[in-house]
């Protein structure tokens, strides 16, 4: 029975790894092999020379940064409040965060157009707010799961009883203990922004994914190469940050 269990576990893990790794491998093989089948970085060089693509990449990174900042500023205090004061409302809020998955992008896009202030609507920053909402089903879950692994109430009360104010508690006690969830939310949010096409296209902004689609019409290798590099790059950076944070937890975290 033990043997069967470990076999099943091994098979599941292998299947999971293949599920994620195969498409990335296939994309890489397609993008980075020339006609003779040799490894080549030519698609990335061509991308670097494409000015419009590079501009859209910087704009998208800017939007991703804004989206992450607003997502964290919105979600960390909200989830802390829900865990501390209104735990009975958690199910309802979780349901609310799922709505972007079920409302069609065209409806959401038109809704944004009507609800945005004119000054904001005329800049690509309008997309930040759209992406904050679009990323909610993933970012909320990642952070909420991290909060669920700690006894927020007791930690909050313990630090308050020692004289810490609300912001000190959040900064020094709560955030360091939910960092993995925060990194998870960051990764998912950035990945979503780097790959989101429908909103940007509907709202007529040239972001990385829309430019990538245009570039893909004439040079599919470049488009796929950039997709792979951006996905793997974000994954590596955030994993590096997670590892750094974990090491910090056992060495320097907690120093006020």
């Amino acid at each position: 029975m033990k043997y069967v269990n470990s076999l099943l576990r091994g098979a599941t893990i292998t299947f999971g790894l293949l599920f994620f790794a195969l498409p990335i491998y296939a994309s890489s093989a397609f993008a980075f092999k020339d006609r003779e089948g040799n490894f080549s970085l030519a698609p990335l060089q061509r991308a670097g020379a494409n000015e419009e693509l590079m501009e859209s990449l910087f704009l998208t990174l800017q939007i991703a940064f804004g989206t992450v900042v607003i997502t964290l500023l919105l979600l960390i205090p909200t989830i802390a409040f829900l865990h501390l004061v209104l735990p009975q409302a958690r199910t309802f809020v979780e349901f609310l965060t799922l709505t972007p998955l079920v409302i069609p992008p065209i409806v959401q896009g038109v809704g944004f157009l009507y609800s945005m202030p004119t000054q904001l609507k005329s800049t690509p920053n309008a997309l930040i707010f759209a992406y904050v909402i679009l990323a909610l089903p993933f970012s909320y879950r990642a952070i909420d799961a991290a909060f669920s692994t700690i006894d927020v109430k007791t930690l909050f009360e313990a630090s308050t009883s020692l004289g810490a104010n609300f912001f000190t508690v959040i900064r020094k006690v709560i955030i360091p203990n939910v960092m993995n969830g925060i990194f998870g939310a960051m990764f998912l949010t950035i990945a979503l922004v780097l790959g989101e096409f429908a909103y940007a296209s509907l709202l007529l902004w040239d972001t990385f994914p829309t430019q990538l689609a245009v570039a893909g019409l004439s040079d599919a290798n470049t488009a796929v190469a950039l997709s792979v590099v951006s996905l793997v790059g974000v994954w590596l950076i955030l994993n590096g940050l997670t590892l750094f944070n974990r090491r910090g937890t056992t060495t320097t975290m907690g120093a006020l």
Binding site: L155, E157, A158, G163, V173, P176, T249, M253, G254, L256
Partner: peptide, 27 residues
């Protein structure tokens, strides 16, 4: 509570997981 100048020990383990024993005491 933060201004009452109290010390409190809870039923549940309440040490800050991200801090060593010494850092907890220093807090």
């Amino acid at each position: 509570a933060a201004s009452r100048d109290i010390g409190m020990v809870f039923q549940a383990y309440s040490l800050f997981p991200n801090m060593s024993a010494r850092q907890n005491v220093e807090f």
